[in-house]
Every structure is written in structure tokens, then in C-alpha cells.
Design a protein around this nucleic acid. Structure first.
Lengths: 191, 191
DNA sequence: CGCTAGAAGCAAGGTCTTTGCGTTAAGGCT
DNA sequence: AGCCTTAACGCAAAGACCTTGCTTCTAGCG
């Protein structure tokens, strides 16, 4: 039985906070369950029982950090909105902390629910952009199409390729999507 | 100084073999360094010194298993080659053991070199397919384009999405690539 | 054939992880 | 309002794992 307002919630908040504090103080690699527990004012066994593992705890915290805080900027045109969003996304995810959160979120995730949450965050942001475009009368591609053509390639390269990525790559992907047969034809708005 | 033919090589082989045996006997989650060491006939400290961590050892073994054993099939046409390869790739990677190896390979990989090796395996296979197509006189897209449009979307969904994937999705991606503006126009050969 | 250096064995110490049991507190019931 | 139920936490001990200094072995070299 979940008890969202009670002691459980306080403990969860204390532990998450302890992870965030210690991450910036001693570094992510020096984190241990007993260390986090001491900072949070709980016993290690509490963490082991609730999260099972340091990796799962880090995964939870990482997903929290990957959640976008605001809807994407509105630039008045689909191409600009998507390009800007993709550039920001790529920038965040290629930064060392971004890569670390991404790794943590994926790694300590036995059932894949945290990974699914990350994917849903991106899909929601894209959904907002596409809905705005449709409202303006622009032809907009499907969310899944944007994920296939823009999000996936960036993520693949972040995870699997050692080479660095710049915002030109994000721009290239969005252009390839919107100029292609699946995407929206340009609609009078500037591209 | 590497000593490829000596004791180091024997130890490495024994440890890798022990991991493979124990994975199928007791399951991947029950593996521990002392267990593997006992089976391999070495002391745990040897493993800790060479690999540093159970995750890095599992990462090494996983990458070995993800290495393709043969060049991709030749069906006489680019579209058929790519579709078949993508279907097989998707099938392997979505299977529970495939997902486990993929996770392990990404997981114990501090510098990203193992992930890069996985990516290189796929790129090499695609390279063979594209070279054959060019040799036949077909117009073929770039390797990076194939990775962006076919490999990345499959990988993204495997890693981030809970929903199952079937071979229709692989077919859809290849078709989107070859019919699009970036890919090869159909060239008289059957698609 | 002796020398050098990298790699493995051994063992002890420390840290982390697990687990059983008692206690606390949140939510439901009368 | 007060009791009951039950999930969650604290405590502590036991066990497993990880680290590390030192020794021994072996492959390659002069």
C-alpha cells in the first residue's frame, strides 16, 4: 500500500536529496549505499529494502534529473521549434553529467520502466511541438517519426559512438526529417 | 607488455569460459567474482586486478558474444540484403539473451570502448552489404545514413521502449531509407 | 643462462550486503 | 476519538564480497 504523504515519502525525499548532495561533493563513483544512508539519516537496510541496489537508486535519481522542467520554447514555426529542441537535447545529453545520468537511468533498471519514462519525457516534449505546429496549420509528422529520425540517431551516437557531436548534427537530422517524404512539406513558414 | 601466447591468455580464456558456463548453469544474476574465479581455477584477486569489476568482465564477454560470426547473407539486391540483415539484427537484439548482452556490454564500460566495438560490428556488416550493392551497380546510401535510419531507431526502441518489436518494423525502416531522398533510387533490381 | 618485469597466488583486513526480529507510524474501521 | 492492521523502518549480527601488500612464478630478453 503506497503512503504518499507519510514517512515513506519523507524517507524517499531524504535519500534522493542525499544522493544529489553527495554526487556533487564526493563524485558519483564514490557513492555507496552506507554513505548515502548516513547522509539521509536512515539505515542502509532501509535503502536495500526499498531500492534493492545502489544502481536502482541512482537510476531513480537520474530519471528525476532527466525530466524536463518546462515545455519547449515556441519559435512560431515547426522547423525552428524542432531544431532548437534537438540542439538543446543533444547538448544536455552529450555533456558529461548528461551522459552519466543517461547511463545510470538505463543501467539500474531491471524492468525497463525508468528507460520508458525517459523516452516518454522526450515524446511529450515533441508532442507539444507537433501540436503547436498543427494548431498553426503546418503539416507535422508523427511523433514516432520524429523519434525514429531525430531522437534515435542522437541517442545511438551518444551511447555507442566515441566521436563528439555538435549541434550541426541535430540540425542535419531535423532537416532530413522535414525535407523528406514522411515529414511535412514546407508550408510557407520559414525553414 | 602483452603476452598473447602465455599464461595471461590461458587465464583470460579460462575466465571467459567460466562466465559462459556459469551463465547458462546458474543464471546471469547469480554470477559473482569468487564464483567465476573458482570455476576458472584462479583466485578472485586475479579477476579484480585484470578486469577491476564483475561488470567489466561481463561486458567483455558480452561484446564477444555480440560479434557477428559470418558476413551478412547475399540475396543479390541491396533492399533484400538490408532488410534481411535488419530483421536478423532486430530479432537477436530483442531476444532476452540479446538484451542482456547488450545491457552488459554497455554497463561495464567506463570509457565506452566496448560500446564502440558493438557499433563497429554493425557498421562493418552494413559496409559489406553496401559494398556489394555498389559493386553490382546499385546506388547505395552511406553507412552513416543506414545507421541513422535503420540501426538507431531499432536500438532506441530496444533500449528505451517497453513495447515489443517485430520484423515489420525493420522492413518499414529499410523501406523508408531506400525510398527516401537520401537513399538509393530503385535501380531496376527487384525490391 | 641469468635477468627483468608483468602477472598470478595468498592472506588479512575492511567494507558492503543480507536477513531476522522488534518497533514505529500511517491509514482504515467502528 | 480511539483501536487495529500492516507496511515500512531501525538495529544488529552474520556472511559475502572487495581491496591490498607481499610473495612466487613465468614469459621474454640480453
Amino acid at each position: 500500500m503506497a503512503r504518499p504523504g507519510g514517512r515513506s515519502a519523507r524517507v524517499q525525499e531524504a535519500v534522493h536529496g542525499a544522493v544529489r548532495e553527495l554526487e556533487s561533493e564526493v563524485g558519483r563513483d564514490a557513492l555507496t549505499v552506507p554513505l548515502v544512508a548516513a547522509r539521509a539519516g536512515v539505515t542502509p537496510s532501509t535503502i536495500y529494502r526499498r531500492w534493492g541496489d545502489l544502481r536502482e537508486l541512482l537510476s531513480d535519481v537520474a530519471v528525476e534529473r532527466l525530466r524536463p522542467e518546462a515545455p519547449p520554447d515556441d519559435h512560431g514555426a515547426l522547423a525552428a521549434d524542432l531544431t532548437t529542441w534537438a540542439e538543446q537535447f543533444l547538448d544536455e545529453m552529450t555533456s558529461p553529467p548528461g551522459r552519466a545520468y543517461l547511463r545510470d537511468a538505463l543501467l539500474g533498471d531491471p524492468d525497463g520502466s525508468n528507460a520508458g519514462r525517459c523516452s516518454a519525457y522526450a515524446a511529450d516534449q515533441i508532442d507539444v511541438i507537433l501540436a503547436r505546429a498543427t494548431e498553426r496549420g503546418e503539416r507535422a509528422p508523427d511523433v514516432e517519426t520524429v523519434i525514429d529520425h531525430v531522437v534515435s540517431p542522437m541517442m545511438y551516437r551518444i551511447l555507442f559512438r566515441p566521436s563528439p557531436l555538435d549541434s550541426d548534427y541535430a540540425h542535419h537530422l531535423v532537416a532530413g526529417l522535414l525535407d523528406g517524404p514522411v515529414g511535412a512539406a514546407s508550408d510557407g513558414t520559414d525553414a
